[in-house]
Design a protein around this nucleic acid. Structure first.
Length: 157
DNA sequence: GCCAACGTTGGC
DNA sequence: GCCAACGTTGGC
């Protein structure tokens, strides 16, 4: 299948691009929204591009690029009663929640802020620039991806 | 810290 | 199946 692109939100206090630099690969656990779950479970393919987005900070921003290295599989943190995202409705023989693995690709030399994204012609349709957008995993069109790749210098590590 | 927007829950 | 109440997300 043709390569697809995504934007994935993380609160940097919980998990930041620097954490991904350190870990190289991480499982994207803790998503508890059906629409976001469906993207991870049904649509994401190995090699897909990911924009790593820092949400819930003073100035939200795209902070780096990652790629999908493992397609959707059950989010086992949902079965862990100690986990903050524990969900008693999910059981291991019929999991409710799914996650993917993502691998660090490169970081923005200077992050691409949300206010800036809103000013860029061609990005008006992006989910993340829309008011009230809460979806934490969202598709990005090839055209949008291409534009965003020109908006920062990218630092491979 | 506030609050608008949104998703989920549960009573009916 | 409707919808009010509630909890959460996330920009500001």
């Amino acid at each position: 299948m043709k390569r697809q692109y995504w934007l994935m939100k993380s609160e940097p206090t919980a998990y930041s691009i620097n954490d991904l630099v350190r870990d190289k690969v991480t499982c994207w656990d803790g998503v508890r929204n059906y629409q976001a779950r469906n993207f991870m479970r049904d649509d994401m393919q190995e090699g897909d591009g990911v924009l790593f987005y820092h949400s819930n900070m003073t100035i939200p921003c795209i902070a780096g690029e990652a790629k999908v290295t493992k397609v959707g599989y059950p989010d086992f943190t949902a079965w862990d009663t100690e986990d903050p995202h524990y969900d008693p409705k999910s059981c291991s023989d019929h999991p409710t929640w799914f996650m993917v693995d993502v691998q660090f690709v490169r970081a923005c030399r200077t992050v691409i802020t949300l206010p800036r994204l809103k000013e860029i012609s061609g990005l008006e349709g992006m989910e993340v620039v829309k008011r009230g957008s809460r979806l934490s995993v969202q598709p990005v069109s090839p055209a949008e991806w291409k534009i965003i790749m020109t908006l920062s210098e990218w630092r491979a590590l």
